[in-house]
Every structure is written in C-alpha cells, then in structure tokens.
Design a protein around this nucleic acid. Sequence first.
DNA 1: GCTGAAATTGGTTCGTG
DNA 2: CACGAACCAATTTCAGC
Lengths: 154, 154
Amino acid sequence: MDEIDRNITVALQLDGSAGLAELAKVAGLSVSATAERVKRLEERGVIRAWRADLDPVAAGCPLLVHILVTVAPGRDETAFRMAMRRQETVLECHAITGDWTYLLKVRLADLPALDAFLNDELRAQSGVQRVETLLAIATVKETSILPVAPATEE
Amino acid sequence: MDEIDRNITVALQLDGSAGLAELAKVAGLSVSATAERVKRLEERGVIRAWRADLDPVAAGCPLLVHILVTVAPGRDETAFRMAMRRQETVLECHAITGDWTYLLKVRLADLPALDAFLNDELRAQSGVQRVETLLAIATVKETSILPVAPATEE
DNA sequence: GCTGAAATTGGTTCGTG
DNA sequence: CACGAACCAATTTCAGC
C-alpha cells in the first residue's frame, strides 16, 4: 500500500469506469503494471467490489432516517442483529458508545413505510426499550468515498 | 423504471463488474438490449457513477464516529455546510429533526485524529454550540446498496 | 516488478424483424 | 423496441529487461 496504490484507490473510488489507460496516467505506470496493481488490490481485499452508485431519489427511497435504539441489557442481541442485517432498508447498523445501544441508518419510500418499519420491524424485536427517530431534512453531503490514509506499510 | 430496470439496478449494485452477458441473463434480455437499458439508466441519472468499494480498515480509516451537532439558531449555516463538504473525513452530513441540528458520519485513522477533528475542524466552526460523539464499537451492517422500489412509473 | 506488443475477451454499432 | 452479427476498443497475457 504505497503512494501509487493510494492514488489508484482514490481514482477508482471517484470513477471506476475510467479504464486502465486513464488510470495508468494518474499512477505513473504502464497499462499492464497498473492492471497488476488493481488485481493485487482486489486479492488483498482492499477493493471489495465494483458497484453502480445509484441516486436514492431515482431508486425510490428518498426518505432518510437515523434511528437510535436502546436494547435491554443482558439480553442476547444476536436475533436483533440478524434482523437488522436481513432488512434491505437498513443500510447501516452500528453498536455505539453512550446512552444508546445501536444507531441505524434507514432509507425508505415514504412516511407510511417508516411507520411500518418502526412498528412491525423495530419495536417488534424483543428487548427494544427506547427508539428515537432522527429524520433527515436536508442532506448536505453523502458519499461512500473513503479518505485513503497515506503511506500505510504492507 | 420497470421491473427489468429494477433487476438491473439491483444486480449492478451487487456486482458492477459482472459484464453484459451475465447481466442479460438476470434481465431476461439480449446483450445489446441490456446495454441500451444500462445506458439509459446512466443518462436518466439513476446510475450516478461506477465506483470501487473499499474496505475501510484496509483503506486506513478503521474508526467510525457519528457526531450530533447543535448550531446556534439564526446563524448563516452556509459556512458550516461548506466546511463539512470540504472535509474528506466527513462521509455524511445531514440536517435533522429533533434537538440537534446536524448529524455527521466521520471516518478516521485513530483517536488522535478524532481529537484533532473535533477541536480543529468542528468546534472551530462559528455557531457550533453542542457536540456529542457516538463512537461505533461494532459495525453490524454497513452497505451502500439501496433498496430499489418496485414498479415506479417513468 | 515494470515494460511493450501480441492475443483475446469484452462492449459498441449497425441492419433487420 | 428487441434481436444477432460484424466491428472496434478494451483488458489480459506473455516474453524480455
């Protein structure tokens, strides 16, 4: 993971359809050497997948909510976690520090869908004590582009 | 945006490197018809970009924090929003309902980097009154794959 | 490990039903 | 609007440095 790999990963996050010729220029290498680098980044698991980045509104899920959840202590949370993983509308689920147990990121079509999710999916889970819904009024920024740290050894 | 487009967008989110031959099978169309569909989805802005999906740990930003921020009312928040957009570590910034003004999603290398971000970038912004940091202990789920709504007209 | 050219597997573009 | 074949540009492979 040298400086060249860093440049490649940054470029491929911005535009993965650019092609090796374009990529070779930013890497400062030949086309074949660049292809080799990309293949190694895939093998090492740095690049996990190639994805189409969709517009949430066009995809039919314009509503974005973050939900703070408190789960009763001492309970086995495996069932809760499995249920969150299974739900397609749940984009993220993190166990967090502080007063709350989990923070969810959920994308939905409309408010009735939110109502249904809160009642049928979330509050239906055993152990769920407290729920607070934070509705996104405006999204200032939303990206999946990670800040690749410079100069990480092997 | 019919059922075929839905299948295509779902498949391309899961694996954008599959190729048109593979994609044509899940779409139930010929290769050229599938290519036409994909091109139209790009033109209509449903597909915004093609990206390499990186592993956050391998990319050197294993620390994930969500930060709730209260900004003094009546202030012009343009400067704050611009600053958040400029920061590469800030993956998301949403204006939200409830007691807080903004919710941030931030990825960092380590705790010193978090300390630096809170002091130099966030609290340094004029108007910032209250900050609460929610550190992710464990990530149960984190995906960028959107739940594409079925049967959305035009 | 990188280079550059040959070989091959794609995607793209046409005419046709 | 979808199909199939020919075209063309891409990636992949390989010998040499």
